[in-house]
Design a protein around this nucleic acid. Structure first.
Lengths: 220, 220
DNA sequence: CGGCATCTTGAGTTGGGTCAATGGTCGTGG
DNA sequence: CCACGACCATTGACCCAACTCAAGATGCCG
């Protein structure tokens, strides 16, 4: 699933970045259809992006935490196709289009970094497609928890103690299942001794067990 | 779903492209894990990309036809995460990394085009995520057919007469369902007078009916 | 403390998967 | 030119994972 931290790249970008902004929980960073004029690096907090179909159907396409970059969905058409909303009070860096173009006048290295950042988003998306297209619900939840765990670890936090910033419904939307299913699976994992669930706090008790839960499918 | 033709961008790239290659049906263009050193523009034919999970699970992530570009999955890590296979005898243009970097020395316009191409892949992926995460199987098949229809039309072909280059199993993998389900739905659509199915040849009889089939879900 | 949102749990239903048999189509070789 | 075999697609019968609907439980905030 999503992207790990990219200390190297981010440090590079950081040097160039000045425009920081605080966003409150629930506030919209950009909206579907709005003009694309920047991408955003998360400095702290938690952001979700969601895509909306004409008929009201909605799907969360990503959760972004510190060090991750969102907004690439606007590049293709100059308008964002997703809406991006802060899940808690967060701090973001705004990287305007003009900066991006300036990068290109600069070093080859920076250009390549930029391509890599976009490439990462593509890899992330493909992984989610695999997850949605060919995994069972339990496997998806396990994969989700492991992915969060890795990202926490990459940020120097404990990989065993996760604080979910999103609600069950949002996890469900992201993973393509109903809220009740998410809830039941968390309970089941808890009964199996894989996790300890306490509201939005998850403690991973059996990391390998979780990993096994991903591959226990009908099988080839 | 996927990308329409992009005559403008492609013309730009075309000017720069010299390395053409013919690939036979079934042959691999690049393989998971192989070093990333180029992206590929389809000149003619039909290409699929698929991603493989450790446990043998496999998911098709895209079908590419003339004017579309594949290979971006390699940029992030310098290694491809997908395998790309020709579904019929095809012709591709190889656009090596070195070219891409040379673009950047050139005009701003070309750079921006390149970003847009990658951005398009991201938009495509998000659309598929929406499809896999929140649509019923019938809706997915309808959306798939409409998407193909649009892409055929964008290439000057009839939007009503589609020749599928992939087999049912591949459609199923792409859409996250079993081959039997694909088959049943095609039969159902035929009974409803939406399509006429004859092997790999599909004739769309009721375009609006198909569109309606996408939004007839449980509903908000 | 009450009111509201979120989460959990249960019971019943169903969409799509599984398994198995049949039917087409195509390419190859006698 | 036809017959055989391999592969692919369709169809049917049955089953189960995940959804739906509904009731409680829990936690949070004013």
């Amino acid at each position: 699933m999503p992207t790990g931290a990219s200390s190297h790249l981010l440090k590079k970008l950081d040097m160039l970045i000045s425009v920081r902004k605080r966003v409150k929980a629930g506030s919209i960073i950009y909206h579907t259809g709005s003009q694309f004029h920047a991408i955003y690096a998360v400095k702290s907090g938690f952001i979700k992006t969601e895509i909306l179909h004409e008929d009201g159907r909605m799907q969360i396409t990503g959760f972004y935490m510190s060090g991750e970059i969102l907004g690439f969905d606007g590049i293709a058409t100059d308008h964002h196709i997703c809406t991006s909303i802060a899940l808690e009070n967060s701090e973001i860096c705004i990287i305007p289009l003009s900066w991006i173009e300036r990068f290109n006048q600069g070093s080859d290295e920076l250009q390549r970094h930029f391509y890599k950042l976009m490439g990462r988003e593509i890899v992330r998306d493909h992984t989610i497609m695999l997850l949605l297209g060919s995994m069972q619900t339990e496997e998806r939840v396990a994969a989700f928890m492991l992915n969060l765990s890795q990202r926490f670890q990459a940020r120097g936090l404990s990989p065993y103690s996760l604080t979910l910033r999103m609600k069950r419904e949002e996890i469900g939307s992201y993973l393509g299942m109903k809220i009740e299913t998410v809830s039941r699976i968390l309970t089941k994992f808890q009964e199996q001794g894989l996790l300890e669930v306490q509201q939005k706090n998850i403690r991973i008790l059996d990391m390998n067990g979780l990993k096994r839960a991903i591959s226990q499918s009908p099988e080839i």
